[in-house]
Design a protein around this nucleic acid. Sequence first.
DNA 1: TCAAGTGTATTATCGTATCAATACACATAG
DNA 2: CTATGTGTATTGATACGATAATACACTTGA
Lengths: 130, 130
Amino acid sequence: MFILNPQSGVPIYRQILEQVRRMVASGQLHAGAELPSVRELAVTHAINPMTISKAYTLLEAEGLLARNRGKPMTVVGPARGAARGQTPLNKRLEQIDPLVDQIVLAARQLQVSEAELVKALRRKWEETDE
Amino acid sequence: MFILNPQSGVPIYRQILEQVRRMVASGQLHAGAELPSVRELAVTHAINPMTISKAYTLLEAEGLLARNRGKPMTVVGPARGAARGQTPLNKRLEQIDPLVDQIVLAARQLQVSEAELVKALRRKWEETDE
DNA sequence: TCAAGTGTATTATCGTATCAATACACATAG
DNA sequence: CTATGTGTATTGATACGATAATACACTTGA
């Protein structure tokens, strides 16, 4: 369910935070959906259960997840009042903005043209087309 | 010279590593070029001199920079007058690849379309057009 | 010569991130 | 009731990232 890279420099619990936020915003994790158990994730990703628990706790404090003692964490959001589906596009784009900043900075420092950057992006997009 | 974001989750010294690698690969930092002093960077970015020194030390171990006792760090590279251009495009693209992975993953988790992603990218590209 | 500029070593402290092993409180299927 | 499944608290340990304050060796311009 998650794609975690311990070598990336980004703390594991932060990778989980970001990925849950995204999947909730997109509706891939709808309200009421259950998240993988901490022990299951700990095994499949070879990480410590408490690391995942930390992420879950923060997501609860954020209002995205709900604790159910004895049962799996469940998704609370997105916005109850609004359409039960996705967050508006501009809100979703906000979440991706820091990455856009990063990649544009990197491309400019590498003197990779906008066209080449877009090409690399499209290439990766096709590769991950499943 | 560097653009550092302490909140990004990426360690500062790693941000410096990556940015020097990029600017050397693109030729923006040509062989023999001097880098900013650790004390100057420490002041302008409000970070500790030893954090920068750590990055410089690692870049020397990597073979990209040379220590000159009493003088600034310099970029190691092909002899002056020799072909000291950019590294080939595909090599530069390799450096940007992890970021491409990240952003495509994020876009798919957010269910942002390829078209919208490219649009956001072009928008940011224009903004940073200086 | 000397003052100001390099990078770096040293020692110490602090906060964060992760792991390990254990234990607890609760829910639910059998 | 019991076994198994939730998340979490606890304690302790290790590693990393960053800071702070000095001090050193070296170069260079005045």
